[in-house]
């Protein structure tokens, strides 16, 4: 009998992170309800959803801190259920809260974890150097951690998570509560790590925050994955339509009547000479339509097409239901 949950051999082309139909129930709450996705080496995967969607629970399952009620999660070919110790060796987890030890400074804190990860001698020293300079903590290395600002704490947490150069980093809402500058710095750090080959799973409840650094995003709500893919893909898939706004100089009523019979035009709304409608065509068809309007002798002063923003997409996918 062979355990089917782990492939016998793991190729470098296989996913680094794999959620296989993971479920996690807390009593009646279905915190994670059948989530599956894959993340490949060096990719950044954004996990987006409102509060209570199940992001933290999924990430804790991947980090071996929580067991799935059903399903399995695989990190670098090892199951979080059966071989959590092997998973832990190649994984860094940054939780959303910050739990600290009193009476310690930043170097001592990182040094402790370097020791806990079995780094000895020169390795430990170089790991500390690398981490401190990467996170920019070297300036405040001897500050007690109880007095750190939120941004510095996040850096320290990131430093702790990456001290052993893990192949997979899991960051739970790392940008939460950071000021814009700190966010940008965090984004740069994450991108830098991804370039160096680390596979990163990062969560947020704000889509725009992740849109730029993620190769892929997954939108979760109520424990279910509603959409996955690159941001552009999701946008494309979900918005066949464009909103067009028209301002005519006169003859608004006639224009409305003219437009109703046109294909791909729907949901026309008009106030005086101002019209807006939904258009289901590509940009060429859009240009054709504009040409036709002008050829029909309508006098147009404004023509604006607006694609839905990421926020619109997000609002469209999620229902806002809370469990």
């Amino acid at each position: 009998m062979v355990d089917v949950s782990v492939a016998n051999y793991h190729q470098s082309t296989d996913p680094m992170i794999e959620m296989r139909r993971v479920h996690r129930f807390f009593g009646k709450t279905k915190a994670v309800n059948d989530i599956s996705f894959e993340v490949y080496r060096g990719q950044v995967f954004g996990f987006i959803g409102p509060n209570g969607a199940g992001k933290t629970t999924s990430m804790r399952i991947l980090s071996t801190l929580e067991l799935p009620s059903y399903g399995d999660a695989i990190v670098d070919g090892f199951s979080v259920i059966n071989d959590p110790d092997l998973v832990r060796r190649r994984l860094g987890f940054m939780p959303d809260g910050f739990s600290m030890y009193p009476n310690m400074n930043c170097v001592e804190y990182l040094d402790f974890f370097a020791r806990a990860y079995g780094l000895l001698g020169k390795d430990r020293m170089s790991a500390l150097r690398r981490t401190l300079s990467f996170t920019g903590l070297d300036k405040i290395a001897s500050k007690p951690i109880t007095g750190l600002s939120k941004g510095m704490r996040q850096r320290l947490c990131l430093g702790r998570a990456m001290i052993h150069s893990p192949a997979v980093l899991i960051l739970d809402e790392p940008a939460n509560g950071l000021d814009p500058r700190a966010r940008i710095e965090l984004r740069q750090m994450i991108q830098q790590l991804a370039v160096e080959g680390t596979t990163i799973l990062v969560s947020s409840h704000i889509l725009t925050e992740l849109a730029e650094m993620c190769d892929q995003v997954g939108i979760v709500e109520r424990g279910q994955l509603l959409a996955t893919g690159s941001v552009a893909e999701i946008q494309r898939r979900l918005q066949g339509s464009t909103w067009v706004q028209l301002v005519a100089i006169r003859q608004g009523e006639q224009l409305e009547a003219w437009l109703t019979v046109k294909p791909k035009v729907s949901q026309i709304a008009r106030t005086e000479n101002k019209l807006s409608f939904q258009f289901d065509g590509g940009s060429e068809e859009q240009a054709e339509l504009l040409k036709a309007i002008v050829n029909a002798d309508f006098l147009i002063s404004e023509f604006a097409a607006r694609q839905e923003t990421l926020e619109d997409v997000f609002m469209k996918i999620t229902t806002g239901a809370v469990q």
Partner: peptide
Amino acid sequence: MSSLVHPASGPE
């Protein structure tokens, strides 16, 4: 004439 809003403007 056609103006597309940039899909992803950064936070703040």
